[in-house]
């Protein structure tokens, strides 16, 4: 059985070698490869430039640092691609030629595509070297402070590892991120295209600010709509220019909210921006409790108000009316009485 497996494996290897359609040694070796290689022969044609299948192949050539490799070897090879039919017909002829090739191949010095081929993480090393070269190039350009630089979501280390298929260490990766951040700090108006192209490789697919919500519209009746949520309540508020009248589910604010605090919460967006007497609000709210409903209305009114006056956003953010409060009821856990509460400890 073991023997059978071995032979099968050999056959598969042989087949795969025979099925190779494209030449595997590309740039450094400008010779055509022999088509038929006996599996028993030790001189196997091994590619030196690793095919980066995982990487997104870009049509542009990558920016690689210049290095000097050994000069190409001129080998006279009789075997040409056009001779293939002849090779098929005359077996002994082909064998002879192949032996001839083998002797020549033995003289070949295979040069890796990248100088960092013999390092443990060639892609990563290449990346770092390229970035360093790029940085050297753009080092003299004016910069902005990191806070002012465009916000970029860089790939996480895990994403980078998957991309390169190399066990990159966290610290090294962070050092590379420092380079990237420094490159990102080049003044945006003078940012060279090649830097942008180079940084693209390290950015996440979706960047912050990519998804821009569609801007709110004021409809033909002058209403701006906003939706807000809090806990399990959700509210829709329609804000119109007016005198400060507020209706919640068709009731007045006092009828709907017994507590003064809740009333103030509901119109807090308007009150904090001194707009309470400039707009009318009618809100529809459902779900949750009284406080949740009031605070859902806060958010809804703020969003609708932003449609009327987008410049109020910083003021509303300071008033705490822009961000949705993400807190919700924590789920109950098995073994607990509530989310965190444990049963009373009993000695026996």
């Amino acid at each position: 059985m073991a023997r059978g497996e071995l032979s099968r494996g050999l056959w598969r290897a042989f087949d795969s070698l025979g099925a190779l359609s494209r030449p595997q040694c590309q740039s450094p070796l400008r010779t055509s490869t022999p088509r038929r290689i006996q599996p028993s022969t030790t001189a196997r044609c091994i590619t030196t430039s690793t095919p980066r299948a995982v990487e997104p192949t870009s049509d542009k050539p990558e920016v690689l640092e210049k290095f000097t490799a050994a000069p190409e070897i001129e080998i006279e090879l009789e075997l040409e691609l056009e001779d293939r039919p002849a090779r098929k017909t005359g077996r002994s002829d082909a064998d002879k030629k192949f032996r001839n090739d083998k002797s020549k191949l033995a003289k070949l010095r295979v040069v890796p595509a990248s100088p960092s081929y013999f390092s443990a993480k060639p892609t990563f090393t290449d990346d770092v070297i390229n970035l360093l070269a790029l940085l050297r190039k753009v080092a003299t350009l004016p910069t902005v402070t990191p806070a002012e630089a465009p916000k970029v979501a860089w790939k996480t280390i895990d994403q980078y590892r998957i991309m390169t298929n190399e066990p990159v260490k966290t610290q090294r990766f962070h050092k590379m991120l420092h380079l990237l951040r420094r490159l990102n700090c080049v003044h945006p108006s003078l940012m060279p295209q090649e830097v942008l192209d180079a940084m693209k490789r390290y950015k996440k697919d979706s960047q912050p600010g990519d998804i821009v919500p569609s801007p709110g519209v004021i409809d033909e009746l002058g209403r701006a709509k906003g939706v807000g949520r809090r806990k399990t309540s959700s509210a829709t508020a329609y804000v119109i220019e007016g005198e400060g009248e507020v209706l919640v589910n068709g009731k007045s604010l006092t009828e709907f909210f017994g507590r003064l605090h809740d009333r103030e919460s509901a119109v807090w967006a308007l009150k904090a921006t001194q707009r309470l007497d400039k707009y009318n609000v009618f809100a529809l709210v459902n779900g949750g409790g009284v406080t949740g409903q009031a605070e859902a209305i806060t958010l809804a009114v703020a969003k609708a108000l932003l449609v009327h006056e987008p410049a109020l956003k910083p003021a509303l953010r300071r008033a705490g009316c822009v961000t949705r409060d993400p807190r919700k009821v924590e789920r109950k856990k098995p073994g607990h009485i509530k989310a965190r509460k444990m049963p009373t400890w009993v000695k026996r």
Binding site: V246, S252, L253, L260, R263, V267, K271, Q274
Partner: peptide, 12 residues
């Protein structure tokens, strides 16, 4: 401003 704010909070 104060009057209209209280007027609104007092349910119109």
């Amino acid at each position: 401003g104060f009057v209209s704010e209280r007027w609104s909070l007092a349910g119109m």
